[in-house]
Design a protein around this nucleic acid. Structure first.
Lengths: 339, 339
DNA sequence: TTGAAAGCGCTAACAA
DNA sequence: TTGTTAGCGCTTTCAA
């Protein structure tokens, strides 16, 4: 009942074939590789298709070929501002190649992440795994099913892309030392996070070289609230400098410290990672290690597409995007006192 | 060269059929509606499938049925924190129904939005259009192709879901009046934004009722930078209260005003919309109109899925989610002076 | 270069 | 309830 306007079935290659007076396979060919446009026949097909408003049915194409023109980006939590730029970059690079991107969000749960992956694997041509919470072994298993590039994590057997944590940490330490800091406390993030391990190891390594003591507390959730928890522990034996797993944690630390009347950067310097949107807005604004995250998303997708098109994946050692320290207001001279 | 471990082709219903000693269609049925599990045969099929590790091929299923179990969420810019919670909610609701969600980002460009839509339409069963930059007419056209629900916009012919802007604005005005404000300046966002119009009209309406003058400047881009631009204009004739199109704009206004030595909320009160993550972190923290955005994403997807399953779309008047004012530090008493 | 025909893995009549 | 048989719209041999 009502208006059943009966949308006409969309035309198929057969309709076009009839219209153009050629075989269906000829139509198919004309659309399979639109590079060659010369032939007279091809031109006839084009015209016929145009006049009928024909569009190739991606589902039907995908069945015999497996080419769905879909890739997946899996992340551990959409809500984490860290991903914003990565998503943006990945999505735009996919769109530029006429690919559709599906977002698989793990909601910080390994189970949900797996489920999302399962759901998505059969329909995609490849995937970008950003900051997976799964084990290396599990990742390698799924990598055997479809082309994959790994983001923000280094797995020797797979094409990986990370930020240059070592350089980032070095910049932090080299910034802090002249300000009189002799010791840096690292506020750790999730244990399952590859970046967390990388950052801590970097701090130990650089610290050893530059005669700065590296301490560590945690793990804490990678959130503002996590940072607030950390601040409680921190205030028991206040360091002069803290390097947080990420900006949210850093912000949480600062907030809680401020609430306790402890001035940042007056009493303690706090530095974060990632340079999320909010970091420039807090008071004091956050000094942090930034990386070209959007670029990372773009590169990841481009590499993935290359592999899909048959390029040999370059594994072995992770590609790195550079990092740089953004000096804002949350770090300053070490307070003059015996530690 | 190297290890070509030759992943074995995944089993089909035919393999399962052979294993179970039944017809292929029987296998198909067993998986088509997994509700009925009773039959002896069905059980045999299940066992056979299990032993072979059979999984239905969603692509193959989609071809004859059109059921892809994919929906799309289109947004105008991933980078806008406003969408974060909506994406989250939508994605989790989709996952809960075993649907995959593709994200179609328009990157604030109508052209790109269209392209993304085109790409996605043939493969989805339905779509949620959040804050589209397209015209009503264009939206209605694409709504004829697939089930659709519209977010943050009201289109009489389509199921729509919006925040209760009128109530939100009323709460703002009722909060501001007792503080002595007699006039409120609205800093407008993009003209193509439905919410922008709704908020301004609400302010005019409520203002008229409560004897508060409503002024308006703009449009400005819905970003911090846009807010900064607005602040320049604002300072030419400083109002006592401003209501911004969204939080980013509000934050931009405050930043710029602060840079000019104009105190918020001392000299002027500033209120935003949306309660994005950063709003609680600024100084002063932002007073803003919040809405259950994640919930909105969930409801939108649930309604869409209902329509996909055959429910009659309820159009006519938009569903509304409630709004509430979050009082933080950016609004206070009107400065005592002749305006 | 083109056409004919088989088939991708599933679903959906229709019969049995 | 089960089996048989056509397709869904495309790609891809294989001949012509």
């Amino acid at each position: 009942m009502g208006d059943d306007a009966d949308v006409p079935r969309s035309p198929t290659i057969y309709d076009v074939a009839r219209e153009a007076g050629v075989a269906a396979s000829t139509v198919s060919r004309a659309f399979a590789r639109p590079g060659r446009v010369n032939t007279v026949t091809a031109e006839r097909v084009r015209v016929a298709a145009e006049s009928l408003g024909y569009r190739v049915n991606p589902l039907a194409r995908a069945l015999p070929t497996g080419k769905t023109s879909i890739i997946a980006l899996t992340i551990s939590d959409v809500t984490n501002p860290f991903y914003t730029e990565i998503i943006q970059g990945a999505q735009s690079a996919a769109a530029a190649a006429n690919f559709t991107m599906v977002l698989a969000d793990g909601q910080e749960s390994e189970v949900l992440e797996r489920e999302a992956l399962e759901r998505v694997i059969p329909i995609v041509e490849g995937l970008v795994l950003a900051t997976s919470r799964m084990s290396d072994a599990a990742i390698k298993m799924t990598a055997r099913q479809k082309p994959m590039v790994v983001l923000n994590r280094s797995i020797p057997e797979l094409p990986s892309l990370t930020t240059d944590n070592l350089s980032g940490v070095r910049q932090v330490v080299e910034y802090l030392v002249p300000l009189g800091h002799r010791s840096i406390t690292y506020v750790a993030g999730p244990e399952a996070s590859w970046a967390d391990g990388a950052r801590w190891r970097a701090l130990v390594e650089v610290g050893a070289k530059l005669k700065v003591a590296a301490r560590r507390i945690g793990p804490f959730p990678p959130t503002v609230r996590g940072g607030q928890e950390a601040a409680i522990k921190l205030s028991q034996h206040l360091p002069t400098a803290v390097l947080a797993y990420n900006d949210q944690v850093a912000i949480g630390v600062i907030k809680r410290l401020a609430a306790a009347g402890i001035d940042v950067p007056g009493r303690v310097s706090v530095i974060g990672f990632d340079d999320i949107f909010a970091s420039s807005l807090t008071t004091p604004a956050l000094t942090t290690v930034a990386a070209p995250l959007r670029q990372m998303g773009i590169i990841a997708v481009r590499n993935l597409l290359a592999v899909i098109r048959g390029a040999k994946p370059i594994a072995g050692t992770a590609l790195m995007v550079p990092t740089h320290l953004i000096e804002r207001g949350s770090a300053g001279p070490a307070r003059d006192r015996k530690d």
